[in-house]
Design a protein around this nucleic acid. Sequence first.
DNA 1: GCCATGCTGCGACTAAAGTCACTGCCTGGT
DNA 2: ACCAGGCAGTGACTTTAGTCGCAGCATGGC
Lengths: 233, 233
Amino acid sequence: MPQTENVASALGAAALFSSLSPEELRLLARHAVRKHYAQGEMLFSEGDACKGLHIIVSGKLRIFKSSISGREQVLAVEGPGGSVAELPVFDGAPYPASVSAIEDSEILFVSRNDFRSFCLAHPEVALKMLAVIGARLRRLVGIIEELSFATVRQRLASVLVRLAQTEGKPVGEGIQIQLPGTHQELAHQLGTVRELVSRNLMRLQAEGLVQVEARHITVLDLPGLTAILDSSS
Amino acid sequence: MPQTENVASALGAAALFSSLSPEELRLLARHAVRKHYAQGEMLFSEGDACKGLHIIVSGKLRIFKSSISGREQVLAVEGPGGSVAELPVFDGAPYPASVSAIEDSEILFVSRNDFRSFCLAHPEVALKMLAVIGARLRRLVGIIEELSFATVRQRLASVLVRLAQTEGKPVGEGIQIQLPGTHQELAHQLGTVRELVSRNLMRLQAEGLVQVEARHITVLDLPGLTAILDSSS
DNA sequence: GCCATGCTGCGACTAAAGTCACTGCCTGGT
DNA sequence: ACCAGGCAGTGACTTTAGTCGCAGCATGGC
């Protein structure tokens, strides 16, 4: 059953299960179902009863809240190796947020019961869950901090700086980065609306801090951008 | 050693340790130090290295973030039986937020090392931690939702409704509640400034929804207040 | 090639949020 | 009794956020 073997190694790549032995992974793999989601497709919605755990093999998922008026706030973006809905799987409560696919994604799904019984047999998984959920908690605190203390301009500068530092390519006059999606999507991640993203990008360009060409952005003045982050005004 | 006995029962009242036997509690109690904090005193600040776990015997603590410009955002208020800094104690990272005493408070302190070794010997504590941290995570998601979708007016109405439902006393013309602190403190919990709390309270009064007398508030129209929560405008 | 569709840029506007400065009030200390 | 200090209410103002409507532009399907 080479299929099980593939699934097992995919599971091993997930942060949650990185400490398991190949045998344990194979055992778990037998309970995992492969699923595919197209770009934009919903995995589940906030408030739904929790069915099970989702582990990302490839693609990207967004965890988000949406308001009655149609606005969205992204809580996290998870890539390959990440997982989604660990908490509700564990405590049985409904999903606290919705999840959809940013790109076409391959997912391994483990039902709530299967995962719970596996957890009981393998206590080290509970410890990993603490680590994973702890990391998520810290990121949420970061989001709260930004929402309540920072302007849209500062939040935007913040992601540009982060992108420049992590995946920026140095070119002649600066550091080139690529926006991870449309302005709309970026707005959702910043907790604001499309227009403000567009305007603020233009403003940063007018100030000579960045150079905008469609979704390719060249950061011309990284110190200047960074300075925006902690300017009281 | 009757002192140890007191400490043990105080520990047993904490959510984290509710599943432990009296003997286990006594064992843990031997490592706990009693501390007292006056109103307003800081237990620790964001960024400090984590020294250990704090369990609340009596009083109230606030967990909060503060900005360079002096604003504050309260993340949680913990009362007797609650604990603070479970996560950093567990993963060794610095405190993600600051904690101070809202009232004079009695605290049991367990050092990081003592708590960790106790955890290893008593795996059920790790499960409790997951539950406690999970609950905290859900509350943070709620805060994010309010910050990014709700106006100050709506957030204020929200706490009034919550107070009315939990600790409201029915009187002739409505439900009487008491603000849990000054306008300043309430503003910190809502992620805004004193003036807006004051103004919005007055506005609710002008609209006949509540009656304000210093810190005593009478909710006259609970349905009306609730209606504010999900009004798109 | 042409049209529908989705992404982007902008101007003008409204509405919230936040700032500043000041007043009055109550309370606790001396 | 008096004064200092913290708390609350308020008016006038600035800044930021968000809304609406529209126009330009690429892209991909037919």
